[in-house]
Amino acid sequence: MAKTTPLKTILTTIFVAAFGMPASAEGELSLLTWEGYADDSFIAAFEAETGCRVSATYVGSGEEIIAKMAAGGGVYDLITPASDITRLIIEAGFVEPVDISRIEQWENIYPQFRELDNIQMDGEYYAMPYTWGAIAFMYRNDAFETPPTSLAALFDPRNEGRIALWDDKSAIYVAARYNGDTNIYTLSDEQIAAAVETLIEQRPLVRRYWSTAGELVDLYVGGEVDISNTWAGYQSALIAAEGIEVTEFIPEENAEGWMDSWMIVDGSADNACTYPFLNMQLSEQGQCGVANVNGYSVANPVAARNCMTEEQFVALHQDDPAYLDALLMWQPLGDRMGAYVNAWNSVKSQ
């Protein structure tokens, strides 16, 4: 079992007031996860095959995951944080080790993910890599005569009222890169302050800080925004399905990359549904299930090869793991997490 640490108290103080307490869910496998990770298109078959009932609470940011865990995360069985906060969650004692001997396709996961320090501690794994992708940028094709190639478009007064930005601490990363500070995970206090100033100057141009995939889709479909950041592959497909042409791009200032993992909430390993669910999610059923719903790349290229078309396999960079090296993959912020979160909150409070 995971060890309780004083870090739980610290995280509770930082996050709970902002996000509140989760609701209890009994008699089922309860997930705290992102949209699409528990979609009926592949979860229904799992429920039918195993008799396990799955319920999901969706989040819009990593900070919300931390807040809900700090507020009483025992009501959940599994969570899917990104790799920038997995170490924090492990050290806080919110989760317990994953018995990789019970994960049937563990060795098929990309070595880059299996070797990450921030999913391990004291010789044990605490997370099962699941999906990955980029925080790309996106624009309406009919809104720009010259396609944007730089972050400058998100700070251009000509786009006033037509810009959306993810309501997440990663907004600090965006502003820092725009300012020319590329060391986005080790920013100094002065660099963070400069990013805050840039975001405050940008704020009158922003139509909405979006929190969920559906919210951003609605902004585009409703004709409210022309450019934003996006969870690459997901919202663009939903918007295109509504007949609106949008284009994703990696700006000149680069883009962040992320990797989400399943983690077992402390005390949930004994749930009879936990490991069957994890194995399903790493199999063809779960890997192509989430790829087809969200458009994300997946952690098990062997399963992906077995269930994807060649076109999809290539489009999702499953054949090119070196693509990961071109992105600014999210990294743990350590004791600087509070500085980034507080900085973003200060922008929104203006």
Rank of each mutant, 00 (worst) to 15 (best):
L31G: 01
N306I: 00
R203P: 11
N345S: 10
R162S: 14
L7G: 05
P251N: 11
H317D: 06
E160F: 15
A38Q: 04
G180R: 01
Q202W: 11
N183L: 05
N183W: 09
V302C: 00
L32N: 07
I14H: 06
V59A: 09
Q120A: 11
P157V: 10
I85F: 12
I100T: 14
V293D: 09
I43M: 11
Y58W: 08
N141I: 03
E311S: 04
R203M: 14
Y209F: 15
C288H: 09
Q202P: 10
D77V: 03
M121R: 09
E107H: 05
I227M: 13
N300E: 01
I172P: 03
T5L: 11
F277S: 05
L88S: 06
A44M: 14
N254A: 15
R140W: 09
T274I: 08
Q331T: 04
F113S: 01
L31I: 03
L7E: 10
E63C: 14
V298Q: 03
A56L: 07
D319L: 02
E63T: 08
R203E: 15
S101I: 04
E256D: 15
R102F: 12
N271H: 12
V196S: 08
S228L: 04
G27V: 00
Q350C: 10
E311H: 06
Q191W: 11
T230W: 06
A70Y: 10
T309H: 06
M259S: 12
Q318H: 05
Q287T: 02
R140G: 09
L278T: 00
L282E: 06
G267M: 14
D39N: 13
D99V: 07
T13Q: 14
A339E: 14
E252R: 10
R177C: 14
L151E: 03
Y340R: 02
L282H: 10
M329W: 13
Q120L: 09
L316I: 01
N229F: 14
E96H: 06
T149L: 15
Q191R: 07
G257H: 05
D168N: 11
V225E: 09
